[in-house]
Simulated assay, not measured.
Amino acid sequence: MAVRMDVTPALRCRGLRRRYGDLIAVDGVSFEIALGETYGLLGPNGAGKTTVISMVAGVLRADAGEVSVAGQPMTPRTPAVKARIGYVPQDVALYPDLSGRENLRFFARLYGLSRAEARSRVAEVLETIGLAERARDPVGEYSGGMKRRLNIGVGLLHQPRLLILDEPTVGVDPQSRNAILASVEALATGGMAVLYTTHYMEEAQRLCDRVGVIDNGRLVAEGTVRELTALVGEHDRVVLAADGDLPAAAEKLRTVAGVREVSVGAGRLELLCGDGRAALPEILACLASAGVAVRSVELREPDLEAVFLHLTGKSLRD
């Protein structure tokens, strides 16, 4: 007998709407996040991200629509459902006079863990966030990046089904930032669902399985990076430094499946492709048959920055 897989989303939002006076901050936002998936919610300042996160976390009641976590409806008055969420806000919420371990033990008890459970979970979380060796030091002596990592650790103590990370790398040094990103990657690999907001497009490209772009309170696009770039007509760019009869080779390249456009420059060919990685073997074979010697190959895949600018008319940090 086949084992039935649980396909209930870790998070499901349907038609979320929130108004502040005459301002509609969120207007009919819907999306889902599966277990083991990292979902990036991107938008310029004032787009409605914070309001969406507040409704997802049960801090703010929606005027319309619904939120469910692991199949259970979420409202500000459903603490049992809230307990399935780990929320890591932008602002660090720690006690500087306590050590890292003492901070975690305090929050573990607030989550309702027994003393034995708290002791075990604190040790595990300290390893996860890479602070086991600094666990006895006062948090006031931590660097900004270490405080951010401990802040994430607080959200992990009760082993939530969904972890909300609201711009977790703001103001941290490159080493700590990379440690935070590596931790998030490990959490998703372990089966946790992650809702991630950031003002750094490269983070979204590295971490997120899917991305939702919100602007003026509405979700204007959603999908994988590849799907979003295709949606707005962006293509991969393949640049080849080469020697030989390049104009003749360009004519042959235009017949290769997936190649949309070919231009010839001084000692180089530039191609636009639907999927550069998939087309590259045939491109190189075509050039070899045309007697062209390729000196270097550069594949430039379209990024989220171009997509975001196309969709919103703004950069992510606006």
Rank of each mutant, 00 (worst) to 15 (best):
T50H: 14
T51S: 08
I53E: 02
I53R: 00
S54G: 13
S54R: 13
M55A: 12
V56I: 15
G58V: 08
V59S: 11
A62L: 05
D63W: 04
D63R: 08
A64W: 11
G65K: 04
E66W: 05
E66I: 03
S68G: 07
V69G: 07
G71K: 13
P73W: 04
R77V: 01
T78Q: 01
P79R: 04
V81C: 05
K82W: 05
A83S: 08
A83L: 07
R84H: 02
I85Q: 04
G86A: 01
Y87H: 05
Y87G: 03
P89T: 02
P89Y: 00
Q90I: 00
Q90T: 02
D91F: 15
V92Y: 11
V92T: 15
A93L: 09
A93P: 02
Y95T: 07
P96D: 05
P96M: 04
D97V: 13
L98R: 12
G100E: 13
E102Q: 11
E102A: 09
N103L: 15
R105M: 13
A108E: 03
Y111V: 08
G112E: 12
G112D: 11
L113N: 14
L113D: 14
R115T: 15
A116T: 05
A116Q: 08
E117H: 05
R119V: 10
R119L: 14
R119E: 15
S120F: 11
R121I: 00
V125K: 06
V125I: 10
L126C: 09
L126Q: 09
T128N: 02
I129G: 04
A132S: 13
A132Q: 13
D137T: 11
P138A: 09
P138D: 08
V139F: 13
G140T: 07
G140H: 07
E141L: 12
E141N: 10
E141M: 07
E141D: 08
S143G: 06
R148P: 09
R149Y: 04
L150A: 09
L150D: 05
L150M: 11
N151M: 06
V154M: 05
V154I: 14
G155D: 08
G155T: 06
L156P: 01
L156H: 07
L157R: 01
H158K: 07
P160E: 12
P160R: 00
R161L: 06
R161C: 04
L163N: 13
L165H: 12
E167N: 05
